[in-house]
Write a protein that binds this DNA or RNA. Sequence first.
DNA 1: ACCCTGGCTAGGAAAAAACAACTGAGCTAT
DNA 2: ATAGCTCAGTTGTTTTTTCCTAGCCAGGGT
Lengths: 150, 150
Amino acid sequence: MKSPTLVNQRCSIARSLVVLGEKWTLLVVRDVRLGHTRFSDIRSRLGVAPDVLADRLGKLVDLGVLERRTYREGGAREREEYVLTPAGEDLAPVLAGLHQWGTRHLPTDLSPASRYVEAATGRPLHVAFVDDDGRSVDIAAVAVLPSEAG
Amino acid sequence: MKSPTLVNQRCSIARSLVVLGEKWTLLVVRDVRLGHTRFSDIRSRLGVAPDVLADRLGKLVDLGVLERRTYREGGAREREEYVLTPAGEDLAPVLAGLHQWGTRHLPTDLSPASRYVEAATGRPLHVAFVDDDGRSVDIAAVAVLPSEAG
DNA sequence: ACCCTGGCTAGGAAAAAACAACTGAGCTAT
DNA sequence: ATAGCTCAGTTGTTTTTTCCTAGCCAGGGT
């Protein structure tokens, strides 16, 4: 937990990070987004301890980011899987933002693991600020305004 | 540290989170972005332990997100302050993405602490996927393609 | 010379994560 | 039927990280 004092802070970045900022959490969301929906699949991909993974999945379900679903494939027994809710899908810009930043500023010898494209056309996409007309705005032109005390 | 095994992973989200994913780190960047550039200022705002803050600031400087700068105001002695580098400015979409997600999905009784606007016009901005022509694309139309093994 | 303030460092306690072993349910092969 | 296998965790212990309090040091000011 980030700190009890942050839970009900006015800053929504702080509120988001209370859960999303815990170790492994965003990587779990990334894996589910890539279609790795089962406990042992995520566990073996990340190398995370099972108790920690159980904790994170539980918190993500409580938070409404993931939904736990039982499924049965072939004649096998029931299994659990975790799928993104709409709130989980809404994390895509955050993940893509981290992806974009890491690609630019943390170079590596390895080739990139994935890239974001428009599904219909395959055209590359990136994350940016846009105005209400859907036109992108340069980062240098962005300001953060503190609101009045409420 | 997230885990030594993640440091050189192909996934740039994982690489970004090795440093940015540590507790307090993104909140420190947020504060610096808001103009809180001095050690004790950040410390008192966040309530973070001084050894942890010194560690995070040092890592952010090593990473090239912050730059440490000495300044002198009035007749006072030299002080240190931390300012964003261009790489730090590039984190704006990540922070704004967390802000946007928290505002939407973690409602609170408190009024929002801040909002993102276009500096010149004051028009509200949000974070979204855009194509190379600078036009926003709906989240539902975004796909993540795994690259070929490299 | 002594005090104050800002930017840390040091030491021990508490919390979190890692590691490892085990449970339990249900299918499957002997 | 029972013994084994896989998945999805739980339980218990060790190690790492963070938290909390205290204090250090440098450079002015008084």
